[in-house]
Design a protein around this nucleic acid. Structure first.
Length: 590
RNA sequence: GGGGCCGUAGCUCAACUGGUUAGAGUACCAGACUGUCGAUCUGGAUGUUGCGGGUUCGAGUCCCGUCGGCCUCGCCA
């Protein structure tokens, strides 16, 4: 047991504490040994405080302090000294004082860490994840985790004050093969059978509405066995909620209120609701995607009509065979070199675009290798459509709609980022609404749910559900923050007959529906109230609030791109006995 | 499953077209120094160039394979 018990944290002491006797505990951040006097910056979660060991003040403590090294854990007792004016360190919150040590206790030593805890030099992800406990010791990481905590606390407080109750739903649950790939967990008691980890608590929260819980929320882990990205981890956290007797606007209002509280709690920022709403159709046509970044304009415009009248074969043939020609005005980008435009072409290639056509705008009109295929009238029509002025660069993709949209959407962001069109301090929240209920799956020759099969169709569109399914709107909504889908939800189907109709259209037969969702269909028979909800990606939210672009920064123990945890070395082999208990055997690798 | 980038001292990086004993900063160790706060000064130690193979008189550099990290397309209802 230590004799010294801390009385204050390392971020606490101020000028007013001068003269008092204190004990601090923490990690040795830096050591400055002047031969005579030794300075130690002592660090804990709350800050740093300078501790002084002076041989004239206390010879024994000074002698012991010469053994101190980085990351030693110590307790120090001493008197708080007010620093003379010229020795104040304005970089430290505690910079007006220091602790003159009378007694030092080394609670633990430390090997030299594999990277410097205090340094802001970049360390490889690999090393950071292997020694995550050291990485998390860095103040910046503690700030990130604290912000995440603030979001969760703000959410819990807000939901509680709005009559929501937090209910836990199971992690060991049933596999639902549609959607993302499931993480499976073998059952020992029921050999040969498997649980699945939930991709989301979707069906449970609907069931809770049938139970009459009225308003549910949960901050909950979800699991999807898909390939990783900077914005995607195999286990991630959702702020999940569901409400009874509501329409779209009720859910939207609740979330807008939540976001106001979250911004206040984490950034001290007042944001204004309601947020802008955009239809799916407009989002796709103006921005080429359903989660547009609205911090800058550069909207997409269509020139398929002009392309038809031109002599440019590539455009003409695409336009005449049902494809489209659309483009953006990269304002002020006519200065781009041929090489830079070539790089943009390579960039759109990866989204399936076969090429990138361009015009530079100058005082005389359009300049480009393909300008000769467009007569003066067509050229001025193009200039007019894009409100182009000399110095602008017009970029076009001709292909089928999905390719054009994706390529231009990505190109738009790429150009905005590289040319500084984005105000990085801005937070732009918006809703995308009026999603189609279905999309056509060419491969399988059937319709698939865009959202999920429990999404309610728009009541006005029910009459042509069977004749024109692609025109049916869903009562779904996505919330978008700075071009990232923060979350999505919908009003659900609460009537069994409608649910059956939807399964029919999705070509999910009666037996399959019963086997997979029988419990929900059954529940809908017993007085299910109208209900709807939404789920928000917590990790993404915190990442964006902090101005970061890697979701791993706000997750304490994230996985690498190969879905491994380098710290604990998971996944790993298991004992033969464990497999035997489960009735499993491994296939020999090919 | 496809495409791309990367792996050199504890860490971050350098090493021209293949060419002598693989360097720098920082961290680390030792000594000096009583007011620093990125302390300073002097000195020192530190390498399976991820791993395996190949080409070559000679490989950190070229080729093949493999492992690992990152980005991305597909995938992610």
């Amino acid at each position: 047991m230590s004799d010294l018990q801390r009385t204050h944290t390392c971020g606490q002491l101020r000028r007013a504490d001068a003269g008092s006797e204190v004990t601090l505990s923490g990690w040795v951040d830096t050591r400055r040994d002047h031969g005579g006097v030794i300075f130690i910056d002592l660090r804990d979660r709350y800050g740093k405080t300078q501790v002084v060991f002076n041989p004239e003040h206390n010879a024994e403590a000074h002698k012991e302090a010469s053994d101190l090294r980085s990351e030693y854990v110590i307790a120090v007792k001493g008197k708080v000294n007010e620093r003379p004016e010229d020795m104040i360190n304005p970089k430290l919150e505690t910079g007006e004082i220091e602790v003159m040590s009378d007694k030092l206790e080394i609670l633990n030593t430390s090997e030299t860490p594999p990277f410097e805890i205090t340094a802001d030099t970049d360390v490889s992800t690999e090393l950071r994840l292997k020694y995550r406990y050291l990485d998390l010791r860095r103040p910046v990481m503690q700030k990130y985790l604290t912000s995440r905590h603030r979001v969760c606390q703000a959410a819990r407080k807000y939901f509680d004050s709005n009559n929501f109750i937090e209910v836990e739903t199971p992690f060991l649950t049933k596999s639902t093969p549609e959607g993302a790939r499931d993480y499976l967990v073998p059952s020992r008691i029921n050999r040969g059978q498997f649980y699945a980890l939930p991709q989301s608590p979707q069906l449970f929260k609907q069931i809770l509405m049938v139970s009459g819980l009225d308003r549910y929320f949960q901050i909950v882990k979800c699991f999807r066995d898909e390939d990783l990205r900077a914005q995607r981890q195999p286990e991630f956290t959702q702020i999940d909620l569901e409400m009874s007797f509501v329409r779209e606007d009720d859910v939207i209002n609740i979330i807008e209120g939540l976001m106001v509280e979250v911004f206040k709690a984490v950034l001290g920022k007042e944001i204004t609701a309601p947020f802008k709403r955009l239809s799916y159709r407009d989002a796709m046509s103006l921005y080429g995607c359903d989660a547009p970044d609205l911090r800058f304009e550069m909207t997409i415009k269509e020139i398929t009509d002009i392309a038809k009248k031109s002599n440019f074969k590539v455009f003409k043939s695409v336009a005449e065979s049902g494809g489209q020609v659309r483009g953006i005005n990269a304002t002020g980008c006519a200065k781009l070199s041929r090489k830079e435009i070539d790089e943009l072409t390579t960039f759109v290639n990866q989204f399936g675009a076969k090429g990138l056509a361009w015009f530079k705008v100058d005082e005389n009109g359009l300049t480009s290798q393909i300008a000769k295929f467009f007569n003066a009238d067509l050229q001025s029509e193009i200039i007019k459509r894009f409100s182009a002025v000399p110095g602008d660069l017009l970029l076009f993709v001709a292909d089928k709609e999905s390719v054009v949209s994706q390529a231009l959407s990505q190109l738009r962001i790429n150009i905005a980022k590289t040319n500084g069109f984005i105000n990085e301090d801005e937070f732009n929240l918006s809703w995308v609404v009026d999603f189609p209920l279905f999309e056509y799956n060419e491969e399988m020759d059937r319709y698939d749910s865009l959202h999920h099969p429990f999404t309610s169709p728009h009541p006005d569109d029910l009459e042509f559900l069977e004749e024109r399914p692609l025109d049916v709107r869903a009562r779904a909504y996505d919330i978008v923050l700075n071009g990232v889908e923060l979350g999505g939800g919908s009003i659900r189907i609460h009537r069994q007959d409608v649910q059956k109709k939807i399964f029919n259209l999705l070509k999910i037969d009666e037996a399959t529906a019963q086997e997979r969702f029988g419990f929900l269909l059954e529940a809908l028979k017993y007085g299910a109230p109208p209900h709807g909800g939404i789920a928000l990606g917590l990790d993404r939210m915190v990442t964006i609030l902090l101005g970061l672009d890697d979701i791993r920064e706000v997750i304490a123990f994230p996985k690498t791109q190969k879905a491994a945890c380098l710290m604990v070395d998971a996944p790993s082999d298991v004992d033969e006995k464990q497999l035997k208990d489960l009735g499993l055997s491994l296939q020999k690798p090919d």
